[in-house]
Write a protein that binds this DNA or RNA. Structure first.
Length: 417
RNA sequence: GGGGGAAUGUCCCGAGCGGCAAAGGGGGCGGACUGUAAAUCCGCUGGCUAUGCCUUCGCAGGUUCGAGUCCUGCUUCCCCCA
C-alpha cells in the first residue's frame, strides 16, 4: 500500500488504525475533494459502549478533525435482530424498551468526543429504526433482497464459524447483514454518506453495503476497518474481573478506567498511545522509547490522555492525582472511591468480612474469608489476619473513614455518616 | 411427522460405577518476585448468622435410606430421514 495523500487516511495509517480498506486509492482521492460523510454503527445491546468501540469513535474523531462529517448510527432497528457475526450462539432478543433505554444511555459518550451540530462538518446522530422499522416485507425483498446471493452470504467468515460447527443460524440473524448493507445505501441516499467504518469483524457486513450500492445502481461506497485490539500477551482488550471496560462512568468509574490503562503491558504502550490518544507521533515515539521502570511515566500519560477523552480532562487529572497519592506517596487519598454507611450501623460492630463486601470490593463473605487466608486484605494498610476481627471507632482515621484494600490496587474508603 | 444425540459448578470448555459441594483445564482473583508491567512459581475459584446449616448438574414429577447419575413427562438446541 502506497502512502496516502489525504489527511484523513494518512493519520489513520500513521496511527495503526487501519486493518483493511476497500478501494484505498479511490477513497484517498475522494477524501481530498471536499467534505465527505462517513458513519459507524453502534448496536444497542448494552447501556454503554466499551473500550473496543472507542477505536471506531476515534476514527470518526479523526475524520471530523481532518475536515469531514461523521455520523454515529444508533442501531435501534438492527438491534432488534442481533448481529450474528463471529458469535457461536444467538443473542438474547432485546425488547423495544431495552433498546430505547440503551440508546439514550449510549448517546452520552459521543458528545464528549465528537462535535455535534448543524454545521457542514458537525456530527450527526441517526437511528436506523427510522427507516428499518417501517419497511414492507415483500417490497423490501423485491427491492433489496434480490441483490443478495445466499451462496455468497454463506461464504462469509463471520457466519462460517456457526455453520462449520453445525450450530444453527436463525433466519432472523441471517437477515442482519442485509439490513446493515441496506443502512449504508440508505445513509448514502439521505446524507451522501460514502464511507462506513468499523471493527475488523464488520468487514463482511460493510462490504455487503458496498456491493448493494453497486447492484442497485448507486455510487461507489468505501470501507475502512480497524484491527482487533489485543494486548501483547494475546488477550482481547477490555475485559476485567467485573466485565467489560465500559465508557459510561456509572458502569466503570473514571478512576478504574485510569487504572486500567495505567496497568498496560510495556509492549503495548506505544501502540495504545497511537491508537487511543491524540498526542503527536513525535511525543509518542519519545514516550515509547523510555526503558525499564521509566516506561511507567508513559503509562501515566497514556492513562490520563485516554481518560480525558472519555471522561473529561478534570476527571482524568483527579484520577491521576488520587493514584499518585495512593501508590507513590502511600498517603491516604481522600478522594479514593468511597462508600458511606450509617454511623449506627458502623458502631454496632462491623465484621471485617462484611465490611469488604459492603464496600463492594468483594462479592461475598466467603470470598473475603478466602482472601484473608491468602493475605489479600488490609484495613488502613494493616494486613487482616483474623477473619473474626470487628471494626470500630478506633479504626477511623483522622479523616473519619476506614481504608479497605483488596490486593495492592483496589482501595475503598468506608465512611460512617 | 419419524429416528438419533445434547443440556453439569449462573465466565467458558469439560469428566462424572446411585453416597457429590461434584475430577481436570482455560479464564479470573490473591500471594511471592518486580516497576501498579510481562514471564515464572504458589494458593484460591457455591452461599451463610459456619466444628454446623442452606442451595447447585435444562424444567417438573417418580423410584430409593440416599439421585448429577435410574424411570416418566416437558422445554430448548443439534444431526439424519420425510
Amino acid at each position: 500500500m502506497t502512502a496516502f495523500k489525504s489527511d484523513f487516511l494518512r493519520v489513520l495509517d500513521e496511527r495503526g488504525l487501519i486493518h483493511q480498506v476497500a478501494d484505498p486509492e479511490g477513497l484517498d482521492a475522494l477524501c481530498r475533494t471536499g467534505v465527505q460523510t462517513a458513519y459507524v454503527g453502534y448496536d444497542a445491546t448494552a447501556t454503554s459502549i466499551h473500550i473496543g468501540n472507542l477505536i471506531t469513535v476515534t476514527l470518526l474523531y479523526w475524520f471530523q478533525e481532518t475536515g469531514h462529517r461523521p455520523i454515529t448510527l444508533m442501531g435501534g432497528g438492527t438491534s432488534m435482530v442481533g448481529d450474528p457475526s463471529f458469535r457461536d450462539d444467538q443473542r438474547k432478543l432485546l425488547s423495544v424498551e431495552e433498546i430505547a433505554t440503551n440508546i439514550e444511555s449510549i448517546k452520552r459518550v459521543f458528545g464528549r468526543i465528537l462535535r455535534y451540530g448543524d454545521g457542514p462538518t458537525d456530527a450527526l446522530m441517526v437511528n436506523n429504526a427510522d427507516w428499518l422499522l417501517k419497511l414492507n416485507y415483500v417490497e423490501f425483498l423485491r427491492y433489496v433482497g434480490r441483490h443478495f446471493s445466499v451462496n455468497r452470504m454463506l461464504s462469509f467468515d463471520s457466519v462460517k464459524l456457526r455453520l462449520d460447527r453445525d450450530q444453527s443460524l436463525s433466519f432472523l440473524e441471517f437477515n442482519y447483514m442485509i439490513m446493515q448493507g441496506y443502512d449504508f445505501v440508505e445513509l448514502n441516499r439521505r446524507y451522501g454518506c460514502s464511507l462506513q467504518m468499523g471493527g475488523s469483524d464488520q468487514w463482511g457486513n460493510i462490504i455487503n453495503g458496498v456491493d448493494l450500492s453497486h447492484r442497485m445502481g448507486g455510487p461507489q461506497l468505501y470501507a475502512v476497518t480497524t484491527p482487533l485490539l489485543t494486548t501483547a500477551s494475546g488477550q482481547k482488550m477490555g475485559k476485567t474481573a467485573n466485565g467489560a471496560v465500559w465508557l459510561n462512568g456509572d458502569l466503570f468509574s473514571p478512576y478504574d478506567f485510569w487504572q486500567y490503562f495505567r496497568n498496560t503491558e510495556d509492549a503495548d504502550v506505544g501502540r495504545f498511545l497511537k491508537v487511543f490518544t491524540r498526542l503527536p507521533l513525535g511525543e509518542i515515539a519519545r514516550l515509547e522509547a523510555l526503558g525499564g521502570a521509566e516506561i511507567n511515566e508513559a503509562k501515566k500519560v497514556l492513562a490520563t490522555e485516554i481518560t480525558a477523552i472519555v471522561h473529561g480532562r478534570e476527571a482524568a487529572e483527579a484520577a491521576a492525582e488520587t493514584a499518585r497519592k495512593t501508590f507513590e506517596e502511600g498517603s491516604l487519598a481522600t478522594d479514593l472511591p468511597s462508600v458511606s454507611m450509617t454511623r449506627t450501623e458502623f458502631e454496632a460492630g462491623l465484621g471485617v468480612l462484611t465490611a469488604f463486601v459492603k464496600a463492594g470490593l468483594l462479592p461475598s463473605t466467603g470470598e473475603a474469608r478466602r482472601q484473608v487466608k491468602a493475605g489479600g486484605l488490609r484495613v488502613n494498610d494493616v494486613l487482616v489476619s483474623d477473619e473474626r476481627a470487628v471494626l470500630g471507632s478506633a479504626d477511623l482515621t483522622s479523616d473519619g473513614a476506614v481504608k479497605l484494600s483488596f490486593g495492592k490496587k483496589k482501595h475503598v474508603l468506608l465512611r460512617p455518616e
